[in-house]
Write a protein that binds this DNA or RNA. Structure first.
Lengths: 214, 214
DNA sequence: TATCCAACCGAACGATCGTTAGAAAATTAA
DNA sequence: TTAATTTTCTAACGATCGTTCGGTTGGATA
């Protein structure tokens, strides 16, 4: 599953007249992105500590030592995986809400994209979203926190646009919503749930409340 | 911090006439519970993989080899830590709701106890609540899942008693609520939030809804 | 007293880990 | 072609890990 990435590097020239530097970069990128791609899958399946560089190298069909030509350490590789996953998720959510106009519609679309991104599309950044911040490796902690913070700004803005009851704390709302949505990672069963249905039901309960007369 | 444990084993006899077998068991228990106690703290701070048996042994003031007299493996020690934390949390929540009568009041009390238990009282079972189930060590996975399942039954029952709008899926509600509450582990700042306020606000938003006229 | 057994210890084994050194191969440049 | 550079390789180092082995200790039992 090489995961056709690269929105860039696709100016259709003939392979001969391509700039040699771009060519080199592309070649390097191919190996680098192959490593990220397999690392993504294995980290997610086995956890960071449960995955050895040898595991990843084997899956990427290289020798373990060769990985250090592309990444200076295991933690830097983890960062590359998280960064890619975080950026892709952010782009996904942003692209999804662009087409919508009403504030509630935009919010619902974002929620669906968030859950879908976590559950369906790429299982990778699951670990990023599920690991307690205080366990982030020290060498990349600040970057990871900034990445997550940037992502959450999408929801800050979406919530700003919502007409809410007076007295609703928008920070608590954001954390509650993201928490409830992301928690689905723990219980999602693909035979039983769909990401879109999960997102819509959670938002609906929060929007309209759950209390009734029985 | 030996954490004054042992509600039991305290029949006040003179030390001379104490039953020898109880004496021995007590002695063993003291070491065992000391290990669990320090392991609890270190696992939570450094994670399971980030903690070595040597770390725990040092904190418990023993030699690493001695730990294997009390626990047959590191994973069994982890289980002991999780089991203790899970049971204590369950007892806490159960004790809290016993005093309440109205279904909403009981639910609110449970939510407060849940968040308080996770954030304040004992930082231990945080990892249990925050680790993705698919990363549980294989040898204790079934036990951990059963432990969590048992805990969630409290909320199944509490939600059964709530008068809800028609169309509310009680399973989704439970998972949403527990997710939103537990997620506070990620963002709780003790200078800014209190566990009780977090729990009450989350439940209130879900109960009454957030939508307003602006 | 001699015996026993729970509890602990010192030392080490074997495995695995992240990582590095240095050379070979592959690719590009001249 | 040759030279230069990028990429990958083989081999291993040093550290740490969970765990085990064979003892020692010290208090309770008889």
């Amino acid at each position: 599953m090489p995961s056709a990435v690269s929105t860039k590097a696709q100016k259709p020239k003939t392979s001969k007249e391509m700039a040699p530097k771009a060519d080199r970069a592309t070649k390097g990128m191919q190996a680098r992105e192959r490593i990220i791609s397999v690392a993504e899958a294995i980290f997610n399946k086995q956890g960071f500590d449960g995955t050895s560089m040898r595991d990843i190298a084997a899956a990427a069909e290289m020798q373990p030592a060769s990985m250090y030509y592309h990444f200076e350490s295991k933690e830097e590789l983890l960062w590359a995986v998280w960064e890619k996953g975080g950026i892709e998720l952010r782009n996904r959510v942003n692209a999804a809400i662009e087409a919508e106009t009403g504030p509630w519609q935009r919010m619902e679309t974002a929620c669906v994209a968030h859950v879908t991104g976590l559950l369906d599309w790429r299982r990778a950044n699951q670990v990023l979203f599920v690991m307690p911040p205080w366990h982030y490796p020290e060498s990349i902690k600040a970057r990871v926190i900034a990445l997550r913070h940037g992502y959450e700004q999408i929801f800050v803005s979406l919530i700003d646009d919502l007409p809410l009851r007076t007295g609703i704390d928008r920070r608590y709302l954001r954390l509650t919503l993201i928490g409830a949505l992301s928690w689905s990672l723990f219980w999602f069963k693909k035979e039983r749930d769909t990401p879109a249905a999960i997102a819509k039901q959670i938002l609906s309960m929060l929007r309209e409340g759950i209390e009734g007369t029985k």
